[in-house]
Amino acid sequence: MTALAPLTDAELTALIDGLAGLPYGGEAVDQRTHALQTAWLATDAGADDELVVAAALHDIGRARPVRAEHPGLPHELAGAAFARRRLGGRAAWVIAQHVPAKRYLVATDPAYHALLSPVSVASLKAQGGPMDEHEAARFAAHPLAADAVALRRWDDAAKDPTGPLLPIPALLSAHARCVAARMG
């Protein structure tokens, strides 16, 4: 296995700032606002640093440099490939599973579908619709399933153009603590 090459502060900032103005599929926010709002929601919920960083980067597979590196992959898989090299296995798995988590929640939480935006309802069809019973059981059995479900719920809520955003310095601090813990 290749050693992780942690993101520098400049790289992480450039990735997040590179999402500014990038449309978010018809939602009222751009990709940068969505990323920082998802991270703020994770922080507000008391998530650990690694999950906060994963929340900020859950859609990084849509960023130009990541798309260029992983052409043709769905954004969650491109993001996971990026995260595996730069953040670690947990972040990669949670990023890869934030789309399946939507399918899981639609299948298992009767109130969840009503929370989805029209854009998210439309993308659900392309993503395979609700999980069947076997898929849902397999997903739920994974030790990180709760993290993916939490990320999915923050993702769904992070579409408010006037909502709070995690400041970049707070994201950089969370990332630095993750790197220090891995090195520790």
Rank of each mutant, 00 (worst) to 15 (best):
Q31N: 07
T33R: 13
H34S: 10
A35H: 11
A39G: 03
L41M: 08
T43Y: 00
G46V: 00
A47F: 03
D49E: 04
V52T: 07
A56C: 12
L57R: 12
D59T: 14
I60W: 10
G61L: 12
R62M: 03
R62W: 11
P65M: 05
A68T: 03
P71V: 05
P71Q: 05
P71M: 04
G72V: 10
L73Y: 02
P74V: 15
P74T: 10
H75T: 15
E76W: 03
L77Q: 15
G79D: 13
G79R: 11
F82K: 10
A83R: 06
L87I: 08
G88K: 08
G89Y: 09
R90P: 04
A91C: 12
V94I: 09
I95P: 11
I95W: 10
A96P: 03
Q97L: 05
A101I: 03
K102V: 13
Y104V: 08
L105G: 10
L105D: 01
T108F: 02
T108S: 02
A111Y: 01
H113K: 01
A114N: 11
L115V: 05
V121R: 12
A122R: 14
A126M: 15
A126H: 15
A126W: 15
G128W: 13
G129V: 03
P130Q: 13
D132F: 11
D132L: 14
E133V: 15
E135P: 07
E135F: 11
A136P: 08
F139T: 06
F139K: 06
A140K: 04
A141H: 02
P143Y: 02
A145C: 07
A145H: 06
A148F: 14
L151E: 07
L151W: 06
L151F: 08
R153M: 04
R153L: 07
W154C: 07
D156A: 13
A157E: 07
A158E: 01
A158C: 01
A158I: 00
P161G: 02
G163R: 01
L166N: 04
L166Y: 05
P167Y: 02
P167G: 05
P169V: 09
A170G: 10
